[in-house]
């Protein structure tokens, strides 16, 4: 679990360390150009401080709980922009609606009065109910846990139900677009059947050598707190599809299985109750599997639940290399 802390070294997209380095460099240059000779030592100190203190939350998408769990990224990443604005503030909501007949987008602007609590989903539902009954979106729990309402709001991939409307507005306009990394059905509703097939293809079912054991009366597979922590961060996946939508690799190579499925493969690999062992790893040992990932890190940034698929894939690669090395010994 602790290895997630070093995820920033393993893929791009996280600005923390480069930023820290840059600031140190600039500060040093202005202090005294001669100080460059002690630069390596200072960098080590800076990184040590970073690794030990809680400052890491500023840099990395998510945070640790006291039990060492890596979760609840979304709360921190969005809270800074939460309820602001006045009661009855006017907002223009531009919805880029996919027309299932013409296969083109119709951009339609709706005028809407928001309160400081209004979420993007609230606004869309209100528009549907009172302005345009034909508008379609997918939604259900409206509390960020069912994974239905993934979409792009002012260029940012989000769950509409946990995104504050006024907080997302720029010059009182909010533009809503469907995810474009999935096929589209209608308006802002993506077709996720292919996405579900990817998930299914990694065999995401807890495996026991004795299949009947799972259902046997009185049987309880034990697990320790430490064992739980190894896969828990990856079990928060709500299957919303935002990570696959964000992945630049899958957009150029559709055969690449994608971050969601790979993270789930790793989740079961690390679950101490699962007995499929290294077969899970070797199933991912291909260019369309783990090796297809190019460290873009876009998936982890897009994930609204802090699952961090990018780190899961790097762990998967690491475990694979270790296993391959062991096999060849």
């Amino acid at each position: 679990m602790r290895s997630s802390r070093y995820a920033i070294f393993m893929y791009g997209g996280m600005l923390g360390v480069p930023l820290l380095m840059f600031i140190t460099l600039v500060a040093l240059y202005y202090a005294s150009p001669y100080a460059f000779s002690v630069l390596p030592a200072l960098l080590v100190i800076a990184l040590a401080v970073y690794a030990v203190t809680g400052v890491k939350e500023i840099f990395v998408h998510g945070h640790y709980t006291n039990s060492g769990n890596w979760i609840v990224a979304g709360a921190e990443t969005q809270s800074g922009k939460m309820p602001s604005g006045r009661h009855g503030e006017r907002v223009e909501v531009v919805v880029n609606r996919f027309n299932s007949l013409s296969k083109k987008f119709d951009s339609i602007t709706y005028k809407f009065r928001a309160t400081k609590f209004t979420t993007v989903l609230d606004a869309l539902l209100s528009i549907k109910s009172y302005q345009d009954n034909t508008l379609s979106m997918r939604y259900n729990c409206r509390m960020g846990v069912c994974g239905s309402c993934a979409m792009v709001v002012n260029g940012k991939p989000v769950l509409a139900c946990e995104t504050n409307l006024l907080g997302s507005a720029s010059s009182n306009t909010v533009e809503v677009t469907p995810m474009l990394g999935h096929p589209l059905t209608k308006d802002i509703v993506p077709d996720l059947n292919d996405f579900f097939e990817r998930h299914k293809s990694v065999d995401p079912t807890l495996y026991r050598k004795n299949a009947g054991e799972k259902y046997a009366q009185g049987k309880e597979f034990k697990q320790s707190k430490e064992e739980l922590d190894k896969y828990l961060p990856y079990s928060y996946c709500i299957m919303c599809g935002l990570c696959l939508d964000a992945c630049p690799v899958v957009n150029s190579n559709p055969n690449f299985i994608g971050p969601q499925a790979l993270a789930q493969s790793y989740r079961y690999y690390k679950d101490s109750r699962d007995q499929k062992g290294k077969r899970r790893l070797f199933d991912m040992d291909s260019w369309d599997g783990a090796w297809g990932c190019e460290f873009a890190g876009a998936c982890s940034k897009a994930c609204p639940k802090g699952v961090d698929p990018a780190s899961a894939i790097q762990m998967l690669k690491g475990s694979l290399m270790k296993s391959i090395a062991q096999e060849s010994e």
């Binding site: 009366q217 009185g218 309880e220 597979f221 828990l232 079990s235 109750r273």
Partner: peptide, 22 residues
């Protein structure tokens, strides 16, 4: 109790006690 054990055996990440129990 059996229902909870079944859910454990198919992968629910229960919080754990220090003695590895649910």
């Amino acid at each position: 109790p059996q229902a909870i054990r079944f859910l454990n055996n198919i992968g629910v990440p229960w919080n754990r006690t220090d003695n590895d129990r649910i």
